[in-house]
Amino acid sequence: RKEMTAACTPRRRIINLTSVLSLQEEINEQGHEVLREMLHNHSFVGCVNPQWALAQHQTKLYLLNTTKLSEELFYQILIYDFANFGVLRLSEPAPLFDLAMLALDSPESGWTEEDGPKEGLAEYIVEFLKKKAEMLADYFSLEIDEEGNLIGLPLLIDNYVPPLEGLPIFILRLATEVNWDEEKECFESLSKECAMFYSIRKQYISEESTLSGQQSEVPGSIPNSWKWTVEHIVYKALRSHILPPKHFTEDGNILQLANLPDLYKVFERC
């Protein structure tokens, strides 16, 4: 597991931080080997919608929660590849102030007048994250320049770009939802926020969305749709870069829909 690298990086740093090793061990302890084997050997059937997909393993048909699986995938990559990410360069710098204002204007932020003026909160978020810029760049390849612009994001899987519609809320939550006081809790909560931002979430995906850094293989055609990215990038990574937690067998994120021999018997009677 320590050699797990989802995106190509030129050289690998050895990380011996106790906090990170502890988080890696927790993933191992909570892992479910049968689910790992199923995901490793599954045959992708198709997307139901951005949140759900169908896959077959041996004779069984499964309904998989793409949102939760991708979130767990990105969390584990962030923990196992800690401080070893490439950088996704933004085509132009994104001012943190503008991103924070967009987030505060969104109902998702939960902002009320009692929280104070949005401009003041946005300025605080910019200054707060600028103070964390060195650590964010060093460990997470999340790059913020001296003017308070976001200029780079971590490359977690080759050819995958997170849904940038979720970027404003991500920046807001970096400042408000991460435990910045304790090292282990900081790395864990920061990785979880980043994983949620990178995950496939239906509120940020339309039929026209593209999450891939590449064009489709047909010359002159439109960019790959999110469905292509889910199948050929995300579920491909799920084959080798995730140890599913045991609770996925109990919380409805992986559901067995049918045993195909039983279905064949039904059709034979028709």
Rank of each mutant, 00 (worst) to 15 (best):
residue 253 N to E: 05
residue 186 C to F: 04
residue 131 K to C: 13
residue 147 E to Y: 13
residue 100 A to P: 00
residue 108 E to I: 03
residue 75 Y to R: 04
residue 191 S to A: 07
residue 113 E to G: 07
residue 224 N to Q: 04
residue 40 H to T: 13
residue 206 S to Q: 04
residue 228 W to H: 05
residue 20 V to G: 15
residue 36 R to P: 15
residue 31 G to V: 09
residue 92 E to D: 05
residue 249 T to C: 11
residue 211 L to D: 04
residue 189 S to V: 11
residue 147 E to C: 08
residue 190 L to E: 00
residue 189 S to R: 02
residue 85 F to R: 13
residue 42 H to R: 12
residue 140 F to Q: 02
residue 162 P to T: 01
residue 43 S to P: 07
residue 264 Y to H: 04
residue 164 L to D: 03
residue 250 E to A: 08
residue 64 L to V: 07
residue 165 E to K: 03
residue 147 E to P: 05
residue 59 T to A: 07
residue 59 T to R: 03
residue 212 S to A: 07
residue 95 P to L: 03
residue 188 E to K: 06
residue 40 H to Y: 13
residue 219 P to D: 08
residue 103 A to L: 00
residue 63 L to W: 05
residue 234 V to R: 00
residue 124 Y to S: 02
residue 232 H to R: 12
residue 229 T to N: 05
residue 242 I to G: 14
residue 269 R to H: 10
residue 161 V to S: 06
residue 24 Q to E: 12
residue 93 P to C: 07
residue 33 E to T: 10
residue 219 P to Q: 08
residue 197 F to A: 05
residue 162 P to Y: 00
residue 187 F to N: 06
residue 212 S to N: 10
residue 12 R to T: 12
residue 176 T to A: 04
residue 186 C to A: 02
residue 14 I to T: 06
residue 112 T to N: 09
residue 249 T to K: 04
residue 134 E to C: 03
residue 112 T to W: 15
residue 266 V to R: 15
residue 77 I to W: 11
residue 251 D to M: 11
residue 210 T to H: 07
residue 144 I to Q: 01
residue 197 F to Y: 06
residue 146 E to M: 05
residue 97 F to G: 02
residue 162 P to F: 00
residue 182 E to I: 08
residue 144 I to R: 01
residue 205 I to L: 09
residue 211 L to M: 05
residue 162 P to C: 01
residue 42 H to V: 12
residue 95 P to H: 10
residue 89 R to N: 13
residue 153 L to P: 00
residue 84 N to I: 12
residue 222 I to V: 05
residue 49 N to A: 07
residue 93 P to E: 07
residue 241 H to E: 13
residue 97 F to H: 01
residue 88 L to Q: 03
residue 246 K to A: 10
residue 242 I to P: 15
residue 108 E to L: 05
residue 158 D to M: 06
residue 106 S to Q: 02
residue 192 K to L: 10
residue 11 R to V: 13
residue 25 E to S: 14
residue 149 N to I: 08
residue 270 C to E: 14
residue 167 L to W: 01
residue 204 Y to N: 07
residue 43 S to A: 09
residue 229 T to K: 12
residue 14 I to S: 05
residue 255 L to N: 04
residue 255 L to K: 02
residue 141 S to D: 14
residue 38 M to N: 06
residue 177 E to V: 03
residue 205 I to C: 04
residue 30 Q to M: 10
residue 108 E to Q: 04
residue 157 I to N: 03
residue 250 E to I: 15
residue 244 P to V: 08
residue 201 R to W: 05
residue 90 L to E: 00
residue 16 N to V: 14
residue 122 A to G: 06
residue 4 M to E: 11
residue 213 G to Y: 06
residue 117 P to K: 02
residue 199 S to A: 10
residue 102 L to N: 03
residue 21 L to W: 15
residue 254 I to A: 12
residue 27 I to F: 13
residue 40 H to S: 08
residue 212 S to R: 11
residue 40 H to W: 13
residue 219 P to H: 08
residue 30 Q to T: 10
residue 243 L to D: 13
residue 76 Q to L: 14
residue 105 D to K: 04
residue 1 R to F: 14
residue 164 L to K: 05
residue 218 V to I: 13
residue 77 I to A: 14
residue 103 A to R: 00
residue 94 A to E: 02
residue 166 G to K: 05
residue 118 K to R: 15
residue 107 P to T: 08
residue 189 S to I: 13
residue 34 V to M: 13
residue 9 T to V: 06
residue 161 V to A: 04
residue 234 V to M: 11
residue 225 S to C: 09
residue 31 G to W: 15
residue 11 R to G: 09
residue 241 H to S: 07
